[in-house]
Design a protein around this nucleic acid. Sequence first.
DNA 1: GTCAGTGCAAAAAATTTGCATTAAT
DNA 2: ATTAATGCAAATTTTTTGCACTGAC
Lengths: 132, 132
Amino acid sequence: MRLETIGFRSTAPRRAVLQAIERAPGPFTVEDLLGELPGVGRATVFRTIKLLQELDLLCRVPLEDGSVRYQLSEGTHHHHLVCRACGRFTEFADLELDTRIQEQAAQHGFHLQGHSLELYGLCPECGTAGVA
Amino acid sequence: MRLETIGFRSTAPRRAVLQAIERAPGPFTVEDLLGELPGVGRATVFRTIKLLQELDLLCRVPLEDGSVRYQLSEGTHHHHLVCRACGRFTEFADLELDTRIQEQAAQHGFHLQGHSLELYGLCPECGTAGVA
DNA sequence: GTCAGTGCAAAAAATTTGCATTAAT
DNA sequence: ATTAATGCAAATTTTTTGCACTGAC
């Protein structure tokens, strides 16, 4: 990890959290992580998650019911397609979309600094299964 | 109110919540509402807020820090420009944006059922003040 | 008169904090 | 040696639940 490169210490708990995240088969909650890491303190897991988000290594995805899931991030700016059935989400980026968003902000005299976009529905697998 | 029209009872607590919401000068938290309505029970305020959201009379806006604000809704589908400085938000709708979102979903073989888009930045007033 | 809606207080989540201790650099 | 990072347990914050009671229709 490049944690040390940017002034953070590479500690056992942090490495453990990282590994658990990489091991995760899909989106997870903080509680999931805690369950995977019996030896690591609650606060540490929360603190590490926060750190990883700031480093853009982890993305936080709010669901429609208000709950939150996390998933390893590809790093670059992107949005999510969230499947209501299986709960998994796919990243995608769309420059045109981002441009249009900037235009909207400009039209309202708004100084845009960030945005978040989540699409909810059924992924190809679940959508097909549901219709069939 | 048309609550009764759709099978819900028009009760004093609900009317009180509605009035408090209409009185609100800007986005508010549940706690704000509770403070305005000493006579109304916690659970009732939460239940009424949930109801109003389902009726599209109230919109729920997640902020970047994970907290949530509410604001009376214009009813139709829209997005928000959230000001990081003053906390207020403006609604806007953009058919082109929605279309592009649908296209993205289609490209991923995703059956789109809903989406949420929040823009964060500085509103005209705060942006100008900040720069000046 | 019925049953949706309410209030209350307790329970359940979800997250943060304080602080003495540990360990990375 | 410094001091960032940790663990723990307690404190907050946010939302939900159970249930007897009230009041809209």
